Simulated scan of single mutants.
Amino acid sequence: MNRKVGSEKDYKMNLLEVRDSGKYIFNNTDVQSVFEITRETFAGHFDAIREKYGDKELGAELLTMIGQMTGSKKLVSMGINKEADNMCTALEKLIEDGKKEGMQEGMIDGILTSVKNLMESMGWTAEQAMDALKISQEDRNKYAGMLKKQ
């Protein structure tokens, strides 16, 4: 099929700032939802999202788009893997994942603090401190690397 150059329609594209998108009303309800949820996410208004979109079914594409716009790899993954069918479920999973990550980071920080405290107060090497704390052989390299970075 031969096409003439310039025969395609010329579509105008308007750029808009998501954080300022509240003043716009989109004809497509999915587009409206994506911008509202993204804007509320940036503002940290998760209760407002739950209240308005909690039980509303969102397609995988919408969840993926919201994840892309907010920079949330977890939301993108949920959308691609169809792990959530509404925003409430997605938010609950995000919160739960955040709690798990926070607990893991807290445990690591606690172990590093314990190792450093034993090294300072007892004059031990990192190896001796990790022996006393019964840190597994497989985790020792990880903690030793973290100690060096501090």
Rank of each mutant, 00 (worst) to 15 (best):
residue 141 N to G: 13
residue 136 S to Y: 13
residue 112 L to E: 08
residue 45 H to V: 07
residue 51 E to N: 04
residue 102 G to L: 04
residue 99 K to A: 11
residue 48 A to F: 14
residue 120 E to R: 05
residue 113 T to K: 14
residue 69 M to V: 09
residue 132 A to G: 03
residue 76 V to R: 07
residue 145 G to L: 09
residue 54 G to N: 03
residue 124 W to E: 04
residue 19 R to Y: 13
residue 124 W to P: 00
residue 101 E to V: 05
residue 98 G to Y: 03
residue 120 E to Y: 08
residue 61 E to K: 15
residue 59 G to K: 07
residue 39 R to S: 13
residue 64 T to P: 00
residue 121 S to H: 08
residue 101 E to D: 14
residue 21 S to C: 13
residue 81 N to V: 02
residue 126 A to D: 04
residue 75 L to G: 01
residue 86 N to H: 14
residue 137 Q to P: 12
residue 116 K to R: 15
residue 67 G to P: 01
residue 69 M to G: 08
residue 117 N to W: 08
residue 49 I to Y: 04
residue 93 K to I: 04
residue 58 L to M: 12
residue 96 E to D: 12
residue 113 T to F: 11
residue 132 A to H: 05
residue 128 Q to L: 13
residue 80 I to G: 00
residue 141 N to E: 15
residue 94 L to Y: 03
residue 126 A to S: 07
residue 84 A to W: 05
residue 127 E to W: 09
residue 84 A to F: 07
residue 121 S to T: 08
residue 85 D to Q: 08
residue 124 W to G: 01
residue 90 A to M: 07
residue 117 N to K: 13
residue 50 R to P: 06
residue 58 L to A: 05
residue 24 Y to P: 00
residue 30 D to P: 05
residue 145 G to A: 11
residue 64 T to A: 02
residue 78 M to P: 00
residue 59 G to N: 05
residue 77 S to H: 02
residue 135 I to W: 02
residue 103 M to L: 15
residue 114 S to I: 03
residue 103 M to K: 14
residue 75 L to F: 03
residue 70 T to N: 05
residue 60 A to M: 08
residue 135 I to P: 02
residue 91 L to N: 10
residue 31 V to M: 11
residue 136 S to T: 15
residue 127 E to V: 15
residue 32 Q to W: 08
residue 103 M to V: 13
residue 65 M to I: 14
residue 28 N to S: 12
residue 20 D to R: 09
residue 21 S to P: 03
residue 24 Y to H: 02
residue 44 G to F: 11
residue 24 Y to M: 01
residue 37 I to R: 00
residue 136 S to G: 15
residue 83 E to A: 01
residue 51 E to T: 07
residue 132 A to N: 07
residue 128 Q to N: 14
residue 82 K to R: 11
residue 29 T to A: 13
residue 38 T to D: 07
residue 109 D to A: 14
residue 56 K to R: 15
residue 105 E to V: 12
residue 21 S to D: 06
residue 131 D to A: 10
residue 94 L to S: 00
residue 43 A to K: 15
residue 99 K to C: 11
residue 91 L to R: 09
residue 55 D to F: 06
residue 80 I to K: 04
residue 45 H to W: 10
residue 76 V to L: 09
residue 24 Y to K: 01
residue 51 E to A: 09
residue 91 L to Y: 12
residue 87 M to D: 11
residue 109 D to H: 12
residue 67 G to T: 02
residue 49 I to M: 11
residue 58 L to H: 05
residue 116 K to Y: 09
residue 62 L to N: 09
residue 48 A to Q: 15
residue 121 S to N: 06
residue 109 D to K: 14
residue 131 D to N: 15
residue 75 L to S: 01
residue 24 Y to L: 02
residue 61 E to F: 11
residue 135 I to C: 05
residue 49 I to R: 03
residue 57 E to I: 04
residue 123 G to I: 13
residue 57 E to S: 06
residue 16 L to M: 13
residue 67 G to L: 01
residue 77 S to N: 06
residue 27 N to H: 12
residue 34 V to Q: 06
residue 32 Q to Y: 07
residue 133 L to E: 10
residue 99 K to N: 12
residue 38 T to S: 14
residue 108 I to W: 06
residue 95 I to V: 13
residue 94 L to P: 04
residue 110 G to N: 14
residue 33 S to W: 12
residue 22 G to P: 02
residue 52 K to H: 11
residue 64 T to V: 00
residue 111 I to D: 09
residue 34 V to N: 04
residue 115 V to T: 02
